[in-house]
């Protein structure tokens, strides 16, 4: 059996009270930071970053805590964003219903793709998820409702619950912040629940978890569906916030990007994906002038992270404090 070190280098031990307190402090800092930040920088950038941070957190739930590398998470993000955009524009649904519909779509897709992918382990799992995502990319390219190369543009933000006008940036910002925090906290709760402990056991040693009587397939599938749904929630929110759903969101580079965000921030850390998403988006924002070189820079970051920096930003900082 595989005795190589698991992917999540920081492998969390028993969560001590001290550690919990530490998490709560960082959680508080993050909330305060996100409330204050729009006074200093572009709210639209922050909203986009929060959507991607939630996307990365959802992805991290699989790689960091179950040890499953999904290389096709753009599937859930992108398809949820299409369905949400179409529901809001084509059917004129209110934003909360559109987002819900997008998230449900991602959950169903996650159930189908997940039940296929968990039939194989390790490297094959990654290839299967990538291949299925590519298949649904072609479907999105061909389907009528997605608008093909144009995507769905000018998606109305609409009125939340039919009451609150989301064209108002402050209102939109609060909605995105609440969704992000709710998703983040849900993931935190999942990780620290008994269910989450079983997931970590599967990550560390699946045959042993099986011999202890856990139906690991089921646990993996549930984790996969949860991760896909949360990725869908992120994608739907993005569609409403940025008012667009396009092929970029559903294509393979997007799957790679979420891997990169999580890797840079720290695989298997709670705050890592958030930090990673903000860093990568900030980089793209600053580097938009250099055009195609962004791809090269992303590749270089990938290589550097894998060779020298496997714990990511948050993981490295945590390791410093442990000494």
């Amino acid at each position: 059996m595989d005795t190589t070190p698991s992917l999540a280098v920081t492998g969390s031990r028993q969560p001590s009270a001290l550690r919990r307190n530490g998490d709560m402090i960082f959680f508080a800092i993050m909330i305060v930071g996100l409330i204050v930040a729009p006074f200093f920088t572009y709210p639209l950038f922050l909203m986009q970053a929060m959507c991607f941070a939630l996307f990365a957190c959802a992805f991290n739930l699989l790689i960091g805590y179950v040890g499953l590398l999904s290389f096709g998470h753009a599937l859930y993000f992108g398809w949820a964003s299409y369905v949400c955009a179409y529901a809001a524009k084509g059917w004129g649904l209110t934003p909360e219903l559109a987002i819900l519909l997008g998230t449900l779509t991602a959950a169903v897709l996650g159930l189908v793709a997940g039940s296929l992918a968990i039939r194989r382990q390790g490297i094959y799992f990654a290839m299967i998820t990538l291949a299925l995502a590519q298949m649904m990319y072609f479907v999105a390219l061909r389907a009528k409702f997605t608008g093909g190369e144009d995507g769905i543009q000018a998606v109305p933000r609409g009125y939340l619950f039919g009451l609150i006008d989301l064209r108002n940036t402050t209102a939109m910002y609060i909605v995105v912040l609440v969704i992000f925090l709710a998703g983040f906290f849900l993931i935190y709760r999942i990780i620290h629940s008994p269910f989450g402990e079983v997931l970590k056991a599967i990550r560390e040693n699946e045959p042993r978890a099986i011999s202890l009587g856990y139906r690991t397939e089921r646990y993996k599938l549930i984790a996969f569906v949860l991760s896909a749904s949360l990725a869908g929630l992120a994608g739907s929110t993005k569609a409403i916030t940025l008012q667009i759903a396009s092929l970029t969101d559903v294509n393979w580079p997007m799957s790679g990007e979420v891997v990169l965000m999580t890797l840079v921030g720290g695989l298997g850390t709670i705050f890592g994906p958030v930090v990673g998403a903000f860093v990568i988006l900030f980089m793209q924002f600053k580097l938009s002038v250099v055009g195609e070189w962004v791809l090269v820079i992303q590749g270089v970051i990938f290589v550097t992270c894998v060779l020298l920096f496997r714990r990511g930003i948050v993981g490295e900082i945590a390791a410093l404090f442990k000494r």
Binding site: D2, T4, P5, S6, L7, L69, F71, G122, I123, A126, G256, V259, L263, Q298, G299, V300, I301, F302, V303, C305, V306, L307, R310
Partner: peptide
């Protein structure tokens, strides 16, 4: 872990 090889070659 084998997955690091995938990530590096993706980069």
């Amino acid at each position: 872990d084998h997955l690091y090889g995938l990530l590096l070659t993706f980069g």
